[in-house]
């Protein structure tokens, strides 16, 4: 499978800013999708609003670009009505952590067979760089001109607590591990959650003394630490997330039976 077998070549070059991590996430997703030999005609891609919401419009498959925060609810309907379809959700930190938080935690709890890929760039990119629920403490955005005074959400830890079957987080720097994890998430039964911490040089970097994509990229690299090692590094502040660092790795792997199987959906 070549890259443009899965993506719409007629829409290239895509609309994302120079250096945006979404392109990297798309590469990794493509690798994982091609390697897991899934049928693109039996896969539906669902997304919400925001930069991440535009990904399905580049994918050559049935895709549903929905309202802000609701992709998990739409995706659940698709999966339950036709369990033969593989359903992949692309979402962002604003979409998933703020307006769609309720659908996110209940989606994890309900454990419908979905693969949710969240591109977390710490900011609302499309609307011009407003603070998000994952913006680190003290960082600047267009609505926190004196620095963010709220502590951020740790989306992966939330997913673990809410009962998702598979939870993993990587940054766009960890392309190899990320690809491996997406592949695992795609074949995993039940609700699997992949958080991709990504650089937004245009909105996040620019306001936080990281003018180029390169600088944000290196900042991600410098601040990420493997989840397994994180416990020894715990600091007494929560500025980046619960660990004070971008913890990466696989957070949980459970084998709860998927909702569709529990209720025995017939078709």
């Amino acid at each position: 499978m070549k890259f443009f077998d899965l993506y719409r070549k007629d829409r290239w070059p895509h609309m994302f800013c120079p250096g945006c991590g979404i392109g990297t996430a798309m590469n990794c997703f493509f690798r994982a999708f091609a390697e897991s030999r899934l049928n693109q005609d039996k896969t539906v891609f669902v997304s919400g609003i925001g930069c991440s919401g535009r990904i399905p419009s580049y994918i050559l498959a049935d895709s549903l670009h929905t309202t802000h925060g609701r992709p998990i609810a739409f995706a659940g309907g698709i999966k339950l009505a036709n369990p033969e379809l593989k359903v992949v959700v692309f979402t962002g930190d604003g979409d998933l952590g703020a307006i769609g938080g309720n659908h996110f935690i209940n989606g994890c709890r309900r454990n419908i067979d979905l693969t949710v890929i969240c591109i977390n760039n710490y900011i609302y990119g499309m609307t011009g760089g407003q603070v998000s629920t994952t913006t680190p403490f003290g960082y600047y955005t267009s609505t926190t001109p004196y620095g963010n005074k709220e502590y951020p959400f740790d989306l992966s830890e939330v997913a673990v607590a809410a009962g998702a079957n598979y939870v993993t987080r990587w940054t766009t720097y960890h392309v190899k591990s990320l690809t491996k994890s997406i592949k695992k998430a795609l074949v995993k039964d039940g609700f699997s959650f992949v958080e991709i911490v990504s650089q937004c040089p245009t909105q996040f970097g620019r306001r936080n003394d990281m003018i180029s994509a390169r600088q944000v990229f290196e900042w991600l690299k410098k601040n990420s630490v493997l989840h397994k090692k994180a416990h020894t590094l715990v600091e007494d502040h929560l500025d980046l997330n619960l660990m004070g660092k971008i913890t990466v790795g696989e957070f949980v792997e459970r084998n709860r039976e998927a909702y569709t199987k529990v209720i025995g959906v017939r078709k």
């Binding site: 609701r70 609810a73 739409f74 036709n82």
Partner: peptide, 25 residues
């Protein structure tokens, strides 16, 4: 399939999703 969801927003979202698979919802 009949399901009770977390709110009405999710309910209408789910039936729209289901309808796209060719199901009356």
């Amino acid at each position: 399939v009949s399901i009770q969801l977390e709110d009405e927003i999710a309910s209408i979202a789910a039936i729209i999703g289901a309808s796209w698979t060719g199901t009356k919802a």
